[in-house]
Design a protein around this nucleic acid. Structure first.
Lengths: 246, 246
DNA sequence: CCAAAAGTGTTTGCAATACACCCATGC
DNA sequence: GCATGGGTGTATTGCAAACACTTTTGG
């Protein structure tokens, strides 16, 4: 049965982006209109997600869903948790939404959560397919549908842990970046500040940050040197990191 | 529809246990018998798993599955990854197994992976319900069914990372334990060795390890002091740990 | 008394922290 | 020339690593 869906299984993507200042999430507006008087019953936002198709790997579904919304390929995607609470779709608003649209969604859907990291500036948000799509800073979220706040928070937790263990932050920057951008990125995601001298000292030990013979242009201050990240050098020089107790 | 299953969704549990020497996994034998001549077609081992029931939270399914096999309640369980490859049940042996038993299993089943930590000595392995159930050291695994080797390896990776960040190791020891047991546990899971002086120095800083006025008995060497783990003290004294870059 | 594991201190080097000023550019 | 962010060095402290011998018990 081609194109059939697995009714009880979906994938949701938390799309993180960085704009040189804040960590953002890409959200899709959901507005329920009263059929009679065309008034707005409610309006809120959702992550992007969809059902998994029969015979489709959820990893592939996540790639598809991400591409549907952003048009991007080859972006960083990480599965972080599967959410299966029996209550996750049963809030009043969510049931109204599902019924009023005549959607064929069972009461209990298990969803596999992925997060992706993209450079905000690389996405053209074109209010895609008449959907209102917007970036929101993770600290100024609108009201979210279903259990999407929960999913988003868990994604953030995982991102923070992962960021401390692997150099995934560069996925959020454009190919060439400055060291200050790296610092701002870490500060935004981890919610702290770092001393620039100490932070740069650390960065300068990372051999996979490769300085270019190139500087920022058109900035009204001392232009910063640009760097690229070499995954290749990283793989060759990585060390294991420890935390608790060891 | 009570008792109905979600045909495309299952849960698998990797049950880790520690026996003061090695890290072990609890596996269930799977033997395919030729109906004609009663010869053994093949014999290998599986993790314990089952389908998720309609309206059942996968977390609850994992608890159920674990209890079915071990009879234990209230044990440490952690969801670590969801496996959805379209190929995961399609190996020849696995298809033979499924068809010969007339099992109603679709070709594509997505499974949510959990691992649990138990004290080996607390489980009575009673070849439960005529199933042959055995502990295997993680370094001496038998042949595994389906993609269960893959699932097990991923569980181990997650366990290693988690062990370095949180004091979950005590779930694998009995309530009272010696510091050397803690060291052996960390060595077994992480596959290294530690200097006992440095390791104990570290442990002695952990205020949540509470010494008892009690020692080992019936050992033919200097008896070691016994300790208990206090989650309560841990929660009050935990610090955040860092790795890579910070 | 022997075997087996428990238990204990000191030194050394490296990595984390704290801290303040000059530089290059666009307007 | 001034506002803006870029870029740099040193001193101190705390943590990690290396390393060898004595103690207590059961048999």
């Amino acid at each position: 049965m081609p194109g059939a869906i697995i009714p009880n299984l979906s994938v949701d993507c938390v799309i993180f982006g960085f704009d040189s200042k804040e960590l953002n999430v890409l959200l899709v507006e959901r507005t329920l209109i009263n059929e009679q008087d065309h008034s707005v019953v409610f309006s809120d936002f959702t992550l992007t997600g969809n059902h998994v198709q029969a015979g489709e790997d959820p990893d592939a579904a996540a790639v598809r869903i991400l591409n549907d919304l952003t048009g991007l390929h080859d972006i960083y995607l990480e599965q972080f948790h599967t959410f299966g609470s029996t209550q996750r779709l049963l809030k009043k608003k969510d049931q109204m939404w599902i019924h009023s649209l005549g959607l064929n969604i069972p009461d209990h859907v298990i969803t596999v959560g992925y997060y992706s990291l993209i450079d905000c500036t690389s996405v053209e948000i074109t209010n895609h397919m008449s959907r209102n799509v917007r970036w929101f800073p993770v600290n100024e979220l609108p009201e979210l549908a279903f259990d999407h706040l929960n999913i988003l928070q868990k994604a953030l937790e995982h991102l923070r842990i992962k960021l401390k263990q692997e150099p995934i932050g560069f996925e959020l920057l454009s190919e060439k970046f400055t060291l200050t951008q790296v610092q701002r990125l870490y500060e935004a995601i981890l919610g702290t500040t770092f001393d620039p001298r100490n932070f740069r000292k650390k960065l300068s030990q990372m051999k996979y940050l490769i300085p270019l013979d190139e500087k920022q242009t058109a900035v009204r201050h001392k232009p910063a040197k640009l760097y690229i990240f070499s995954r290749d050098v990283y793989e060759r020089t990585r060390k294991t990191h420890h935390g608790f107790l060891i």
